[in-house]
Amino acid sequence: MNARDRDDAGRARSARPRDGLGRPLPYGAQGVERQPEGVARSPRETTREAQRLLDAGMPFHAHEVFEDAWKSGPPSAAPLWRGLAQLAVGLTHAARGNAVGGARLLRRGADALAGREDAYGIDVAGLVGWARELAGRVEAGEHIDAAAEAPGLSGPRGTPGGPGPA
């Protein structure tokens, strides 16, 4: 590998494989396929792909999907997608055992989303409640499993209208 890995456009981008929580692995190790960057998806495609990744215990990768949405979508929707990305990164840190960072990002995302109207079928108020409750458990030292704690973006998991399994 070069001293600094680059993507096809010449931008700095680590070529190291990553695990399901986005942690870098040694070169040559078997990792989880990375999300392509800069993909323009419809809001429905964004939520569907992010939910799939959350349900699979890969919130780091879901954050990348939300990041694409905030960078490629209309500026008026950017705060929603940015807040959702913060929730995904908060869950990532919590599952990695970083209680301080996990709780902080979960609360930051919840604060960014608080008071926003539901959009694109996303249960904003439900996600705000989920994030604040999880932040408290993270701070209390509870071990967090990313797949088990994954929120339903359009409602509680396992309920009518909720996309994820119970």
Score class of each variant (00 low, 15 high):
D5V: 12
D7H: 09
D7V: 14
R13H: 10
S14L: 14
A15T: 07
R16D: 06
R16S: 08
R18S: 01
R18Q: 11
R18N: 00
G20Y: 08
G20S: 12
G22S: 03
P24W: 14
P24M: 07
L25M: 08
P26Y: 09
A29K: 06
Q30C: 04
Q30V: 11
V32R: 12
E33R: 15
P36G: 09
E37W: 07
G38Q: 11
G38A: 12
G38P: 01
V39P: 00
V39W: 04
R41T: 01
R41E: 00
S42Q: 03
S42E: 02
S42F: 04
R44K: 13
E45D: 14
T47K: 04
E49S: 13
A50Q: 04
Q51T: 11
Q51P: 05
R52E: 14
R52W: 02
L53A: 08
L54H: 02
A56N: 02
A56C: 05
M58R: 15
P59W: 06
A62P: 04
H63T: 05
H63V: 06
E64N: 14
V65H: 03
D68C: 11
P75K: 13
P75M: 10
P75T: 06
S76W: 08
A77K: 01
P79K: 01
Q86Y: 07
L87G: 01
L87M: 05
A88Y: 06
A88E: 10
V89Y: 14
V89A: 13
L91H: 03
L91R: 07
H93V: 06
R96T: 10
G97V: 10
N98G: 06
N98L: 10
A99G: 09
A99H: 07
A99Y: 02
V100P: 00
G102Q: 11
A103E: 07
R104M: 11
L105V: 05
L105E: 02
R108Q: 15
G109A: 06
A110I: 08
D111T: 14
R116G: 02
R116Y: 04
E117D: 15
D118R: 11
D118I: 09
A119M: 12
Y120S: 13
Y120A: 14
I122M: 08
D123K: 13
D123R: 15
D123I: 08
V128H: 00
A131H: 03
R132M: 08
R132F: 05
R137H: 04
E139F: 04
E139W: 02
A140C: 09
H143K: 11
I144S: 12
A148G: 07
A150W: 00
A150H: 00
L153A: 04
S154Y: 01
G155I: 09
G155K: 09
P156Q: 14
P156N: 09
P156I: 15
R157V: 08
T159R: 11
P160D: 11
G162S: 03
P163A: 06
P163G: 05
G164L: 07
G164K: 06
G164I: 10
G164Q: 05
A166H: 06
